[in-house]
Write a protein that binds this DNA or RNA. Structure first.
Length: 208
DNA sequence: GCGACGATCTCA
DNA sequence: GAGATCGTCGCC
C-alpha cells in the first residue's frame, strides 16, 4: 500500500513517484474479475488558486469535493459527455491537488480488461489514455471518493513489488488537452514505454 | 435559467 | 479533422 504521508507531499513531487505504482480494482467472483494497472503516465494538477487548469482552481464545488477529502482519495470526473478519468488526490488535506492517471500497463486481469475494452485491443493499448485506463479497470463515477489507502477499499493503490521500477527512466513535458497553464511541464511518463498515451513530438495516429 | 465548453476517443 | 454527448460552472 502506498503511504498516505507520501501522497501528502506537494503534487509535483508526488506525481512522478506514482509511476510504477499499481492501481487495483478488486472485482467480484472471488477476485477473478480483478484488474490491476501499473502506472506509466501521470499529470499533476495543483489546488485552489495555484493552477488555472485544475478543477479545484476556483475553490470547492459539488464536483471537485473529493479533491478536498485529503491525500489518497480517488477523484473521478466525467468529461466530453462520455469519458471517465481517474485522479489520486495529493497534498495536505484541503489543498485539493491531484494526479491524473493517464496510462498504464495491465498487469493482472488482462482478459477481463479486454472484455471491457474490446477483443481486438492490443495488450499495450488496454489502458493507454486516461479514459481507456478507467474502462480497463472497470471504474466510473461510482468509485468517486474511495480511499485508495484503506485496506478494505475495493480500489487500492499499492507500491509495485517489481524492484525494476527503481530504475525507470522518467521523462517530463507539458500537460495534454488543456487550454490554460499549458507551459507547465507537469506530465511525467516512463520513457520508451509503449503504454504511454502520447510521446513528445510523435503523433499517435501517424500511420492510421 | 442558460449557454459554452471540457484533464477524450474513435473513425474518416 | 470532426463529431459524439452531457454534466458542470460561470455569468446573465
Amino acid at each position: 500500500m502506498v503511504d498516505r504521508a507520501l501522497l501528502g507531499q506537494p503534487v509535483d513531487i508526488v506525481a512522478p513517484q506514482l509511476l510504477g505504482t499499481v492501481v487495483e480494482h478488486r472485482g467480484g467472483e472471488g477476485g477473478r474479475a480483478s484488474v490491476a494497472v501499473q502506472i506509466t503516465e501521470v499529470e499533476a494538477y495543483a489546488g485552489v488558486g495555484a493552477d488555472p487548469a485544475s478543477h479545484a482552481h476556483r475553490g470547492p464545488t459539488a464536483r471537485n469535493a473529493p479533491m478536498f477529502a485529503g491525500p489518497g482519495h480517488l477523484y473521478v470526473y466525467f468529461v466530453y459527455g462520455r469519458h471517465w478519468c481517474l485522479n489520486v488526490v495529493c497534498g495536505p488535506v484541503g489543498e485539493a491537488s491531484a494526479v491524473l492517471l493517464r496510462a498504464g500497463e495491465v498487469v493482472r486481469g488482462r482478459d477481463v480488461a479486454r472484455e471491457r475494452r474490446g477483443a481486438l485491443i492490443a495488450d499495450h493499448e488496454l489502458a493507454r489514455g486516461p479514459a481507456n485506463l478507467a474502462v480497463a479497470l472497470g471504474l466510473t463515477g461510482k468509485a468517486n471518493g474511495i480511499d485508495l489507502v484503506d485496506r478494505s477499499s475495493v480500489v487500492r493503490l499499492r507500491s509495485s513489488r517489481d524492484a525494476a521500477q527503481t530504475f525507470l527512466e522518467v521523462a517530463c513535458g507539458p500537460r495534454v488537452g488543456i487550454t490554460r497553464a499549458v507551459d507547465r511541464p507537469w506530465r511525467w511518463w516512463v520513457e520508451g514505454d509503449p503504454t504511454v498515451s502520447r510521446h513528445p513530438g510523435v503523433r499517435r495516429d501517424a500511420t492510421r
